[in-house]
Amino acid sequence: MTSISRIVAAGLTVAVVTGAAFAASHLDPIVAAGITARQSHMKLYQHNIAVLGAMAQGNIDYDADAAAAAAGNLAALSTLNQSTYWPLGSDSASVEGTRALPAIWENGDDVMAKAAALAEAAAALNAVAGSGLAEMQAALGPVGQACGACHQTYRKRDDG
């Protein structure tokens, strides 16, 4: 190895090592914002499903207006464009603080199909949520299954 190439190699090594260290300690702001956005979005699903679920399980009385409002929110949430929520490099193998598995970015078509299935189930729930407890209960099941279909493959197991 010539001395010049040795210097170049050393320089590259330093660059790579410091780059990796930088990546580990400073989250890219776009990545951080995407993770915050999608986790907030999931919280909103959870909040509205909790209203319907509490009625479905008999923990609170069925209220047609409240049920219709929550189902309307779910339907709206499920159709929002999330493209900026999922920047490259924001998967659980690249950064801390997320359970979004890299498979999401490898199987874009399947993820979109599952998102469409959720939107469909949420629209069906929205159509009946205000019409009665039994109708709402029956339509909530497929929404839960749509949540699970995605979490089955694309959400990292937690440490529980």
Binding site: G53, A56, G148
Partner: peptide, 28 residues
């Protein structure tokens, strides 16, 4: 016990997170 039954029926935890991983098939 009621919460366990509800989870096995719907996949929703008591705070309405949803089941993931292998439990999705188990709940199916």
């Amino acid at each position: 016990e009621a919460q366990i039954v509800a989870y096995l029926q719907t996949g929703f935890t008591p705070d309405f997170d949803s089941a993931g991983g292998e439990m999705v098939d188990v709940i199916a």
